[in-house]
C-alpha cells in the first residue's frame, strides 16, 4: 500500500491519499475527539498528539495540526492510516454510512504505485525508443512511509552510456508526483534483462512474436 501526501495552501493542513476509497460520497469532518467517536479511523488520528481536525473525502484524509510539526506528525499519521486500511476496519461506525468500505478496491489495480508506474512511462530508453516500464526495465516499485519511493531498475545492457540518464530520469519522473518526498533508484543486473520482460504491447511494437527469451 502506498499513501501519497499533498501539501495544502494552509501549512497547518496536510492531505493524505491512501489510494483507496475513504468515503463513498461527500465529505465528513471531525473537529474534536467527541465527533471522532463516529469513526474508528478519526478516533485513532485524534489520539496522535497535535491533531486538531480531520476531514474525510472520497479518496483523501485531510489532517489539521494544532501543534508539533509535520516531520514528526506525518509518520505517525501514515502509520495509523496504513494500519487502519490494512486491517479492513470500517471508516465510519454509523450503519447508514457503512456503505463506505475501508477495504474498497482502489481506483486502479496498482493503487498509488500505479501513478508512479505511469509517471515512469515518460522515461524512454533512447535506443529502443520505448518507455522503461513497458520494456520491463523497472523491476520493482515500493512505497515507504514519509513519501519515500524505492525503484529497482535495470538497463538493456550493462555499461550503457544511457545508464546514468535513465536512473536520474526515473528519479525525476517519480519525484515530480505530489506527495513523493524522496525517490531512491537502485540499479541491478540480477537478473539480466531480456526482451521476455517486455509488456505485450512493447513486444508487438518490436515485432517479437516468440516470447522474447534469448
Amino acid at each position: 500500500m502506498f499513501i501519497q501526501t499533498e501539501a495544502m495552501p494552509d501549512p497547518t493542513m496536510l492531505r493524505f491519499l491512501p489510494g483507496r476509497e475513504v468515503l463513498e460520497e461527500g465529505t465528513r469532518g471531525f473537529r474534536d475527539e467527541r465527533e471522532a467517536a463516529a469513526s474508528p479511523l478519526a478516533e485513532k488520528l485524534f489520539a496522535i498528539e497535535g491533531v486538531s481536525k480531520v476531514e474525510f473525502a472520497r479518496d483523501s484524509i485531510t489532517v489539521t495540526r494544532s501543534g508539533g510539526d509535520w516531520q514528526h506528525l506525518k509518520p505517525a499519521i501514515l502509520g495509523v492510516v496504513m494500519e487502519h486500511f490494512m486491517t479492513g476496519a470500517p471508516v465510519l461506525r454509523n450503519e447508514a454510512a457503512s456503505s463506505v468500505h475501508a477495504s474498497a478496491p482502489p481506483a486502479d489495480a496498482d493503487g498509488e504505485l500505479g501513478h508512479v508506474k505511469e509517471s515512469l512511462r515518460q522515461v524512454i530508453d533512447p535506443e529502443l525508443g520505448y518507455n522503461i516500464v513497458d520494456l520491463g526495465l523497472v523491476y520493482d516499485i515500493a512505497a515507504e512511509e514519509g513519501g519515500v519511493i524505492r525503484i529497482t531498475m535495470t538497463t538493456t545492457t550493462p555499461g550503457c552510456p544511457a545508464t546514468n540518464y535513465l536512473k536520474t530520469g526515473a528519479g525525476e519522473a517519480a519525484g515530480a508526483l505530489p506527495g513523493v518526498e524522496f525517490v531512491d533508484v537502485q540499479l541491478t543486473y540480477e537478473p539480466r534483462w531480456t526482451p521476455e520482460l517486455m509488456s505485450p504491447e512493447a513486444k508487438a511494437y518490436f515485432g517479437i512474436d516468440d516470447g522474447g527469451g534469448w
Binding site: 533512447p126 536520474t168 515530480a176
Partner: peptide, 22 residues
C-alpha cells in the same frame, strides 16, 4: 545515439523527449 544522450539525457523524466530514431 550520442547526440540524443547529450541533448535529451539530462532532461529525461522531466519532459517528454524524442527517440533516437527521431
Amino acid at each position: 545515439f550520442l547526440t540524443w544522450l547529450e541533448c535529451y539525457g539530462p532532461i529525461l523524466g522531466k519532459a517528454p523527449t524524442p527517440r533516437v530514431q527521431d
